[in-house]
Simulated scan of single mutants.
Amino acid sequence: MNNPAPAARRPAGVPSRATGRGSGWPVPATLIALSAIPLIAGAFRLVQLAGGPATIPADDRFTFPAPLVVHIAGAALYALVGAFQFVPRIRRNHPNWHRRAGRVVAVAGLLVAGSALWMTLLYSQKPGTGDLLYVLRLVFAAAMAGSLVLGFAAVRRRDIARHRAWMIRAYAIGLAAGTQAFTEGIAVAAFGDGELVGDLAKGAGWVINLAVAECLIRRRPSRRAGPAPAA
């Protein structure tokens, strides 16, 4: 009887299929790091509203703080849980978790967008901001809510490509507060402080995030190498 053929050896320097795919964990780590500044500021604001020490300047506009509390809590849930929705290994190996977490993320995102619209329309404008930022907040909050609704409708139709695209856009809009921390600092350093400079810097945060999102959506996935040929 013939002996079975020996197992094919992988040539040196060729990664295995398991290791060649990559873990994908740098993506959520980067997203969480980007959202750290607004999340920390939001946590300080909640502590202040609860009667704790005033670690950041008080804001007298929030005489009715419920929308602000919803906005901060929803943003924390949206940023932290949503970051793990972009890990391919989780989507592939734990589809049930991905679906359940996706519903939580979608609800949190709608709360963030809805509370942003509420505060923009019903609260007075923050000193030092102008009408341009007022309009931009309305536009991007509505765009975030619309993207979440379209993404949910797409996955109900089993249109995964459109679902992925709309959810990436919604997450990019929601994460703009982290990018704005950098665009505002750069704008002030380059052009000085001012109402128009601040409004444009915040608008740049949304635009940059959406531009990156569109690049990711349109990027063709790299073709993975097949199994190594037999020696």
Rank of each mutant, 00 (worst) to 15 (best):
E195H: 05
L150Q: 08
R220L: 12
P67E: 12
A5M: 10
D59M: 06
V69M: 11
M144K: 00
A145M: 11
R61Y: 01
A213Y: 00
R9K: 11
A177T: 10
R61H: 06
R169D: 00
V104G: 13
D60C: 01
P57I: 08
V112N: 01
N93I: 04
W166A: 00
V70I: 14
H98R: 05
L133H: 06
H98M: 04
A145I: 03
A73Q: 01
F64A: 11
I90C: 01
F140K: 04
F152V: 13
A58V: 10
I72G: 09
A29P: 03
F152H: 03
Q180K: 04
L34E: 11
L132V: 15
A12M: 04
S115H: 04
P28S: 12
R156I: 08
L121C: 06
L31E: 10
A108R: 05
A108T: 08
P53Q: 04
I37Q: 11
V107C: 07
A43W: 13
A113S: 15
A43M: 15
G82D: 03
V69T: 11
R164V: 13
Y78M: 11
L132W: 13
G102I: 09
T129A: 05
W206G: 00
I160Y: 07
Q85P: 10
G52S: 03
A7H: 10
V104F: 13
D131I: 14
R21P: 04
R162W: 07
A18D: 09
L122P: 01
A29D: 08
H163L: 00
A36P: 06
V188I: 15
G114P: 05
V188D: 08
G109L: 00
G51R: 01
L110P: 07
R164I: 01
A101E: 05
T19E: 15
A165K: 00
